[in-house]
């Protein structure tokens, strides 16, 4: 037994929840719109910063309000990105890689835009927004398990992940619009021919995906000891790894990927460190070995099978 295993387990759960909330929307948006979106990182950061500005400028420390605001901010951002950049490029017949490169451009634009906003906020409040300490929220219930109180981030993470999964299930499986989203994912041309408003479905998907990630960003502010305008950037590679494990198609396998990567990054490194004295700084090495192994073992796009149509259809039902 590794000493301090309890904390390691808690961290694993916490990270699994984060990766789940960040990567399921990535998979959902990719399979519906075919945009490999690097600005996904900004949705995380902007969500977090919505909470940070509400806290730092207005003194608000209610997570539920911050979460609603962050959903709107990050969701609108995603829709705007689609309207102004992705959709026009796709209409012109740009390849997947061109759209992907444009999303990288957007990533940089959004990042520096946030730096500008933090500078302005800093000017007026004299508070440091470029690195913001953990926020303690007032509306998160205290939950005690086995004598130990769960952290706010864990409680909030569990709540947000369950709500996300439940509502996505209901939307995708039980509603007309969800069926339309799945139809567009399966075969966009056929969907359009059969009367599904493809552009509307795409925008709605972007709004939901951006919004969920933004709410995840709010939870991040109750977890991280210091959030920076690059918080999402340094997580995006892990989030993509999780997405690739799901082949960017299967939501179920994306979920499994989230648990797998969180376990490797937390349990794996703790065990290796304790028994084999592997330095903790090797953590990213493990993550990316897993990524490469997944891609090599299951081409073309990881364990979900990726793009071929038959996989798409099978995957999307999961």
């Amino acid at each position: 037994m590794v000493p301090g295993m309890q904390q390691v387990v808690l961290n694993t759960v916490q990270y699994a929840l984060f990766y789940l909330v960040f990567s399921i929307p990535l998979t959902l948006s990719y399979r519906t719109t075919k945009v490999m979106n690097f600005a996904h990182a900004n949705f995380i950061t902007y969500g977090a910063y919505t909470a940070i500005f509400l806290h730092g400028v207005l003194g608000l420390n209610t997570m539920s309000i911050a979460a609603v605001a962050a959903f709107l901010v990050a969701g609108s951002m995603a829709v705007l990105s689609n309207l102004l950049v992705f959709a026009p490029l796709q209409r012109r017949g740009s390849s997947l890689s061109i759209v992907m490169i444009a999303s990288m451009g957007l990533w940089i634009v959004y990042k520096y835009l946030l730096y500008i906003v933090t500078d302005i906020a800093h000017h007026y409040t004299a508070k440091n927004f470029v690195s913001y300490g953990r926020i303690t929220y007032v509306d998160i219930p205290r939950i005690v398990v086995g004598g130990a109180e769960l952290s706010q981030a864990l409680v909030a993470g569990l709540a947000v992940a369950s709500i996300t999964i439940a509502s996505l299930y209901v939307i995708l499986e039980k509603t007309k619009i969800g069926r339309a989203m799945r139809a567009v994912a399966d075969n966009p041309v056929l969907a359009e021919v059969s009367g599904i408003p493809r552009a509307l479905v795409a925008n709605l998907t972007w709004f939901i995906c951006g919004g969920i990630v933004g709410v995840g960003g709010v939870v991040w502010t109750s977890f991280s000891g210091a959030t920076t305008p690059e918080a999402g950037d340094s997580m995006i590679l892990q989030v993509f790894t999780v997405g690739f494990i799901g082949g960017l198609v299967s939501l179920l396998r994306t979920g499994i990927g989230a648990v797998l990567i969180a376990t490797i990054e937390n349990m794996g490194i703790a065990l290796l460190n304790t028994y084999l004295n592997v330095p903790v700084s090797f953590k990213p090495f493990l993550t990316f070995t897993t990524l490469i192994a997944t891609l090599i073992l299951f081409p073309p796009l990881g364990a979900g099978g990726g793009l071929p149509y038959r996989f798409l259809r099978r995957g999307s039902r999961r």
């Binding site: 301090g4 904390q7 390691v8 961290n11 916490q14 990270y15 977890f223 991280s224 000891g225 690059e230 918080a231 999402g232 340094s234 997580m235 990054e265 937390n266 490194i269 703790a270 460190n273 304790t274 903790v280 953590k283």
Partner: peptide, 10 residues
């Protein structure tokens, strides 16, 4: 890193 939770656990 974006966060150091697992480093602190180690």
């Amino acid at each position: 890193l974006p966060d150091y939770a697992s480093e602190v656990a180690a």
